[in-house]
Amino acid sequence: MKVLVCISHVPDTTSKINFTADNSAFDKNGVQFVINPYDEFGLTRAVWFKEKQGAQITVLNVGRAETEPTLRKALAIGADAAIRVDADPSDSFYVAQQIAAVAKEGAYDLIIAGRESIDYNGGQVPGMVASILNFPFVNACVGMEVSDNEASLIREIDGGKEKVKASLPLVIGGQKGLVEEKDLRIPNMRGIMQARSKSLDVRAPQEIAAKTSTGSFTKPAPKSAVKMIDADNVAELVRLLHEEAKVI
């Protein structure tokens, strides 16, 4: 089985987010980048496929050279090869087209992406890739087994879960549940050494026009100071929720 894991390169979850002086872009200064948390679950699931039933894993990022440490980390975790499409990930449609082109050429059986990237929170790329390729698509995927070209999956729905089946090739938008938090792989020394000699193929992008353009960025308005209420006077909280906040 050939598995393509799409890796988004995002600010670490503890990052303070700042925008450039003219508010036209995200300020990357001093920000640590990591594998998108949702993609980590998918990558570890792919490594399990490899270990338990045999799979060849390629990780893919659409980005500039700055994302290579993130791809190397994915190689150290257990991917066999990496591809970087050398372009600015200008919008979801653009990225999805690049991923679809790589997927088509490499004839992958399974394309694992994350439910969303924690930078722009688009949640668009996997569904677009599936639709471009006319592959079945399962979003918010929290469980996946594959045998004989067929996958059994579990996906989250509003207020529950759904068990579904789909034939390969297939695209998923994955999250925690594909593997558990405690099972996430972190690179060990041997993995890091091996990653150095694995292939990281840099490709030129397809010519595609984006469909959106980003304007200015703003930060949320600061919260006004908290009102503290005495633990012995809970009735006061009820009053405030009713009269001031008007939420009850």
Partner: peptide, 20 residues
């Protein structure tokens, strides 16, 4: 959950920009 799965697929089929 379903809306988030539907919108990207529809954006391709309807040749639309998706603002999410």
């Amino acid at each position: 959950f379903n809306g988030k799965a539907l919108a990207p697929a529809l954006s391709i089929k309807h040749n639309a920009a998706l603002l999410s």
